[in-house]
Amino acid sequence: MARLKIHISRRSFLATGAAASAVLATPALSQQLPDTVQNRSEISATTRHNISAFRRMQWEPHFDSLRNGAILVDIDSRALHLWQEDGTHHLYPSSVPQSEDLTRRGRTRIVQKVVGPSWRPTPNMLRRNPEWPTVIGPGPDNPLGSHALYLGWTYYRIHGTHDTRKIGRRSSSGCIGLYNEHIAEVFDMTKVGTQVLLI
């Protein structure tokens, strides 16, 4: 009997229908992958890596402790993992930087938390786009969405977005983006001092 070979690209996986989209957009994905994915052994390496990031991960390989909580962002898989101090794990789909030269990896911490942040383009952004405004206040046009977690690296944030099309894509100029409802949850579960690792 001929064996059926199945190849799923990340794009086609994300576009397989409302059910798959709904699963990818919720933290519950860490509990259960859709049957259409679980039962397929022959999928691309990129898709396999992406799917693996949406399973429950352990914090111990990445952090010495959960003091103040911990956030792990997997850039390649576009997933944000959050562990609270008691070990409770949360998982969110994210947007990531558009290119490798805009991507920063390593360890940092949350140094400031802001509800209704104002957005200011970086000097490099203004050089590339001199027509941009120098500041956008809170509201539906603000690229930082409803909440922002400022990291110890200048110009880097974990923040919300009003443009939900960006989530799950390489679409930022360096920051990590979440749906507004997800950044609100992460905002409430973290504190200044929460450790952050981008891999």
Rank of each mutant, 00 (worst) to 15 (best):
residue 1 M to H: 14
residue 5 K to E: 15
residue 5 K to A: 15
residue 6 I to E: 11
residue 14 L to I: 13
residue 15 A to N: 15
residue 17 G to Y: 05
residue 20 A to Y: 11
residue 21 S to E: 13
residue 21 S to A: 14
residue 21 S to W: 12
residue 23 V to N: 03
residue 23 V to G: 07
residue 25 A to K: 10
residue 27 P to H: 10
residue 28 A to K: 13
residue 29 L to D: 00
residue 30 S to H: 02
residue 30 S to N: 07
residue 31 Q to M: 13
residue 39 N to D: 09
residue 41 S to R: 15
residue 41 S to L: 13
residue 42 E to M: 12
residue 45 A to D: 14
residue 47 T to N: 12
residue 49 H to F: 15
residue 51 I to H: 12
residue 52 S to Y: 15
residue 58 Q to S: 15
residue 59 W to D: 06
residue 63 F to L: 13
residue 67 R to H: 11
residue 80 L to T: 04
residue 81 H to N: 03
residue 81 H to M: 03
residue 84 Q to S: 11
residue 87 G to W: 14
residue 89 H to V: 01
residue 89 H to M: 01
residue 94 S to Y: 04
residue 98 Q to W: 08
residue 103 T to F: 00
residue 107 R to T: 05
residue 108 T to D: 06
residue 109 R to Y: 09
residue 110 I to T: 04
residue 111 V to T: 04
residue 111 V to L: 00
residue 114 V to T: 05
residue 116 G to P: 07
residue 119 W to G: 05
residue 122 T to N: 03
residue 126 L to S: 04
residue 128 R to L: 14
residue 128 R to K: 09
residue 130 P to Y: 02
residue 131 E to R: 13
residue 131 E to G: 12
residue 132 W to M: 07
residue 139 G to Y: 11
residue 143 P to E: 00
residue 143 P to Q: 00
residue 144 L to S: 13
residue 146 S to Q: 04
residue 149 L to Y: 05
residue 150 Y to T: 03
residue 154 T to H: 15
residue 156 Y to D: 12
residue 159 H to M: 14
residue 161 T to G: 06
residue 167 I to V: 09
residue 168 G to D: 12
residue 171 S to D: 01
residue 172 S to G: 07
residue 174 G to F: 05
residue 176 I to D: 00
residue 180 N to K: 01
residue 181 E to K: 03
residue 183 I to D: 02
residue 183 I to T: 03
residue 184 A to K: 02
residue 189 M to G: 00
residue 192 V to M: 09
residue 197 L to K: 09
residue 199 I to M: 03
